[in-house]
Design a protein around this nucleic acid. Sequence first.
DNA 1: CGCCATATGCCGGTCGCCGATATATGTGAG
DNA 2: CTCACATATATCGGCGACCGGCATATGGCG
Lengths: 109, 109
Amino acid sequence: MQEPTLLLLTALADEPRHGYALMREVAEISDGRVRLRTGTLYGALERLQREGMVRVEREEVVDGRARKVYALAEPGVTALAEETARLRALAVEAERRLALRPGFRGATA
Amino acid sequence: MQEPTLLLLTALADEPRHGYALMREVAEISDGRVRLRTGTLYGALERLQREGMVRVEREEVVDGRARKVYALAEPGVTALAEETARLRALAVEAERRLALRPGFRGATA
DNA sequence: CGCCATATGCCGGTCGCCGATATATGTGAG
DNA sequence: CTCACATATATCGGCGACCGGCATATGGCG
């Protein structure tokens, strides 16, 4: 799983959101580092629906603009939980190895 | 940065290793989940050298077999440290959000 | 002698992501 | 009133990392 996808699932983890809100949320989570393009966003959303990770919870019209509100499906919750656990373990291992290097000054500050 | 690349840099983080040893190391780090293909390995190694992350430390011949021993260059150390810090923060955030879900049972066990 | 582990390398295909483009409405500036 | 901008969704071509398969070569074991 790549980072944009991981960010997307994370942005959906606490509550359902529509596409455009997801773009803003992902930017915020990543401190502005990752700006999802619409091509990536809607492409990923479609793929994640095919894979059963995400579902459309409802469609609404707000101020004359159509919205699709996406939500994490159960497989998505499980996948996200497993992925983050895996990644956290990997990060810890990488940092352990880096600390083994002679003269290493942590970049974590 | 994708996971195979991250795993590769992690495998090089503590000490220099040659290609085949990297395949074994990556498999071990990932608990056997990720088996680097030679195409991925040598392709990534070449790319990472172009990017200045990795360098060939030395070439040796052991038991009649030629080896190239790869090492992390300084930019690789920095990149790995930053990437892991970023990923760890993201994992923490994802887990925080997951914990907010009603009735969530941690998959971290 | 054949098989497996060691060891490196290339090549075609797939797939996720990027960049650009299109479409449409509401809001605020000029 | 009009133009620009934020909101909102969607499609398309292309690129690049990774995968799977193949090729090549040596040393050790049965």
